[in-house]
Measured scan of single mutants.
Amino acid sequence: DYYQTLGLARGASDEEIKRAYRRQALRYHPDKNKEPGAEEKFKEIAEAYDVLSDPRKREIFD
């Protein structure tokens, strides 16, 4: 679930989605986080943001 990936509730505003993405992206960015799995988590976060930030894709997902 993309909302869960970003730590959001369904119905989150565009601003909340953007804030959550930035927070998670900084936390799991491969240059900042060298833990195994961080790069994969970063890709999941980017995919979630891509879907939720686009109104058309978000409507299909919801």
Rank of each mutant, 00 (worst) to 15 (best):
D50E: 04
E44T: 10
K41H: 08
E16K: 04
I60T: 15
K57C: 01
E15T: 11
N33F: 03
A38V: 13
E40T: 11
V51Q: 03
L8Q: 03
S13F: 03
A38Q: 10
S53F: 02
E15F: 10
E44A: 14
Y3I: 00
G37F: 12
D1Q: 09
Y49S: 05
G37V: 10
G11V: 06
D54W: 01
P36K: 14
A25Q: 15
K57S: 07
A9V: 09
E44N: 15
K18D: 06
K34D: 06
S53L: 10
P55S: 10
R10G: 05
G37R: 12
K32Y: 02
E39G: 09
E16H: 04
E44Y: 04
Q24P: 01
Y28Q: 08
D14F: 08
T5P: 05
D1Y: 06
Y3S: 01
D62I: 04
Y28S: 08
V51H: 00
K57A: 09
R23I: 15
E47V: 11
K57I: 02
E39T: 12
L52K: 01
Q4T: 13
E16A: 14
D62Y: 06
L6S: 01
E16M: 07
L8T: 07
E35Y: 09
P55H: 08
R56L: 08
N33A: 14
A38W: 06
G11E: 08
A25N: 10
N33R: 10
Y21L: 03
D50F: 06
G37I: 13
Y3K: 00
E16V: 03
D50S: 13
R56Y: 07
Y28M: 09
P30R: 12
P30S: 14
G11L: 06
I60V: 14
G37E: 08
L52T: 02
D62V: 06
S53G: 13
L6F: 01
A38E: 13
T5A: 09
E47M: 08
H29P: 07
D62Q: 10
L26R: 12
E15D: 14
D31V: 13
A20K: 02
P55D: 05
K57E: 09
A12Y: 00
Y49R: 05
S53W: 00
R10Y: 06
R58A: 02
L8H: 01
D14K: 05
D54V: 05
R10E: 10
R23A: 15
K57V: 01
E47S: 07
L52I: 04
A46N: 15
A48G: 02
G7V: 02
K43S: 04
K34H: 14
Q24H: 09
A46V: 07
E40G: 14
L52H: 01
D54Y: 03
D50L: 12
E40Q: 15
R10H: 08
L6V: 01
D54A: 06
R58V: 03
L52D: 02
A48K: 00
K18Q: 15
K41F: 05
K43P: 00
E15Y: 04
I17E: 00
A25V: 14
L8Y: 00
N33S: 15
R27Y: 15
Y49L: 04
E15G: 09
A25T: 11
Y21E: 03
G7Y: 02
A46K: 15
D14A: 12
E59M: 05
F42L: 07
R56C: 10
Y3W: 07
E47T: 11
K43A: 06
R22H: 12
F42V: 05
E59S: 07
T5N: 05
I45Q: 03
R58K: 06
N33G: 13
E59Y: 02
G11R: 06
H29V: 13
L6N: 02
A46L: 01
A46G: 08
D50A: 13
S13M: 06
Y49P: 03
A38M: 07
Y3A: 00
P36H: 15
R27A: 14
P30Y: 06
D14R: 07
G37H: 10
D62H: 03
E44R: 12
E35I: 13
A48F: 00
P55M: 09
G7C: 02
E47A: 06
A46C: 14
R23D: 15
V51T: 15
S53C: 14
P30L: 11
A20I: 00
R23S: 15
D50P: 01
D54R: 03
L52M: 03
K34V: 04
I60K: 13
A9P: 11
P55Q: 08
R58N: 03
H29R: 12
D1L: 04
Y2W: 05
P36T: 15
E15S: 11
R22A: 14
E47G: 05
R27P: 07
E39Y: 08
R56T: 15
G11A: 04
H29S: 14
N33P: 11
Q4D: 01
N33M: 14
R10L: 08
E40I: 15
E59I: 04
R58C: 05
R56D: 15
R23Y: 04
Y3M: 01
N33E: 08
D31A: 15
K41M: 10
Q4V: 05
A46M: 14
L6D: 01
P36G: 05
K41I: 06
K34R: 10
Y28L: 09
